[in-house]
Each structure stands twice: as C-alpha cells, then as structure tokens.
C-alpha cells in the first residue's frame, strides 16, 4: 500500500499540468450535470405547485366577443344559469373540487390590480372583460372533461385550461436543462479522453519501471492500480469541487437571491443539493476508473 501511494504521488508530480486539467474539466462538467439535475428538480417542484393551483376558465360571451362564436352578444342570465346547472350536474360535479363565478365588476377589479400603472388599465371598461366560471378540478390533468362539455355551448366564448400557459414556461425551462445536460455529456466525454491521455502519458514516463515490474512478475492488478487510482483521485478532487459549486449555487443564488425576489415560488433547497452531490462524486469516480482502467490496459497490452 505504501508503494501504491508513493507511486501516485510521483505520478501527480510528474504530470501536474495534466492532473490539474483533469481536475478542472471534471469540475466544470460535473457542475453542469449538477445544475441541470437541480433544474429538473426545480421544474418538478414548480409543476406540482402550479398545476395544483391551475384552474379551467369558462369565459362567457360579452358585448365585444366575436359574433361567430357569440351571435347573441352578451350571455343572458338564462345561459349563465344553464352553465351553472351543468357544472353542478352529477356527471361533472364528481370531477370538480370547487368553482366560482366572476362577474364584470370582479373581473374589472382583478384586471386593475394586475395591470396597475399600465396604460391599458385606463382604457378597459368592465363590460369588455368576460364574465367567467373558474373551475378548480380535483385532478388538474382532467381539464379535457370541462373543455369538451362547454366548448360550443351557447353563451360560452371559450374554455381555457391555465395549464396550457404553464406548459409553455416549463417547456422552455426543460429545453434549458436539456441543453445543460447535452453540454455536460460532451464535457464528460472530453474529461474521459483527457483522463485516458493523462494516464497513458503517466505510463509512458514510467515505462522503465513498468518493464521491470512485469519482468519480476508483478501482477497486472498491482501494476494497474496506481494508474487507476491516479485518475480516480484527480477526478474525485474535481467532483468534490463540483459538489461544492452546486451547493454554493443553491445556497447563494437560488436561496439567497431568487427566493427573496420571488417569494411565492418554492425553490430547491440545500436538501436537494445534498442529494445531488453524492451522485456527482460517484459519477466522477466511476467515469475516471473506467477511463483510466481502459487506458492502462490498452497501453500495457502493446
């Protein structure tokens, strides 16, 4: 064992610059992997949070609705009552958690709150805003039922699932995390190549010892072990740094910056970060062991 460690120390000293580059490349690529997986976790959390709150809006016809869907103009009280009756009917009510009706005045108030200070708020009148039945489903994925029941019904202008807005946001976030994973894969590949080059260089600079070791009958495992450990140790340093970087991002950027500015969103925390770190370190170690093991085997066969 003493021999093995002195060999590793010698190897590190002999090609320090290569070892440093292995450390850096694994550090950066695993930081990408860690960030991408945290982003995936974040998307999952936000989906849970927002999908739970997503409602289906049944917009009733107003004076300004297009005449092809609303030929009768403003929906009459009878038509509104018909929609309400249908929402309370046996077939639909078992899917619905709760619903409420928003009339012109309430819609106007919500609109003014949302667009306070915006020029558009001055020009909008209460009559231009739809009266709406907001429906909260027990299972927000079943919005299809409401859409099918009310689309085309007299007095209904449009049925809209809020999830369709959310899906756009999530697909953007998803694309970002996929891009990060793509970059990370590419970098991990180059890290593997770099590790195997480093190991081959290290073996070349020790070819005299290697020749003598084989001559006196050192087992293959004994010959290869220092090289594999050299790669693994360099990669471990890189992955520990990457783990630290991921935790720092969670602590200082997500919790310290984002969470303070967006108080109504739940963000990934240190517990999620601590879940990712061992994964990163394990990935770094496995990658390095495979890359250096293959490199030294190929080198020794020749």
């Amino acid at each position: 064992m003493k021999f093995v460690f002195s060999e590793i120390a010698q190897g590190f000293r002999r090609n320090l610059s290569m070892v440093v580059s292995v450390v850096l490349v694994t550090f950066i690529s695993l930081t990408f992997v860690g960030t991408a997986s945290l982003l995936q976790m974040q998307i999952g959390q936000m989906k849970n949070y927002w999908y739970d709150r997503a409602q289906v809006a049944v917009y009733m016809c107003s004076d300004v609705s297009a005449s092809d869907v609303c030929p009768q103009g403003e929906a009459s009280d009878d038509l509104k009552a018909a929609v309400k009756e249908k929402l309370e009917s046996k077939t639909l009510s078992e899917y619905i958690d709760k619903y409420y009706f928003e009339d012109h005045e309430q819609a106007y108030k919500t609109f003014q709150d949302q667009f306070e200070g915006n020029a558009v708020a001055k020009y909008v009148t209460a009559n231009q805003l739809n009266e709406t039945y907001w429906v909260k489903l027990k299972d927000s994925t079943q919005s299809q039922i409401i859409t099918e029941s009310f689309t085309g019904v007299a007095g209904v202008e449009e049925v809209r699932d809020q999830r369709s807005y959310l899906d756009q946001i999530f697909s953007i976030l998803n694309a970002a995390s996929l891009a990060a994973i793509g970059i990370a894969t590419l970098m991990l590949f180059s890290a593997a190549l770099l590790i195997s080059t480093t190991i081959r260089l290290s073996a070349f600079s020790r070819r005299r010892e290697l020749g003598i070791m084989r001559l006196v009958g050192a087992s293959n495992f004994y010959i290869q072990l220092p090289f594999i450990l050299e790669g693994v140790m360099a990669a471990t340093i890189g992955s520990v740094l990457a783990g630290g970087a991921v935790l720092a991002i969670v602590q200082f950027f997500v919790q310290g910056y984002l969470a303070e500015r967006l108080p109504f969103t739940s963000f990934v925390g240190l517990t999620d970060g601590l879940l990712v770190v061992p994964m990163l370190i394990a990935a770094g170690i496995v990658l390095a062991a495979l890359a250096s093991g293959l490199a030294i085997r190929r080198y020794l066969r020749i």
Binding site: R208, G211, I212, R214, L215, V216, G217, A218, S219, N220
Partner: peptide, 19 residues
C-alpha cells in the same frame, strides 16, 4: 495471461543492459 506474472516470479532474468 493473468497467470503469467506468477510464472515469472519463479524464474530470474538478467540482461546485457542490467535494467
């Protein structure tokens, strides 16, 4: 090939260039 090292432990070798 994994038994070769154990075989080589049972013999001694010397060369012209000492190694």
């Amino acid at each position: 090939s994994r038994r070769v090292p154990f075989f080589r432990r049972r013999l001694g070798v010397v060369f012209q260039d000492f190694r």
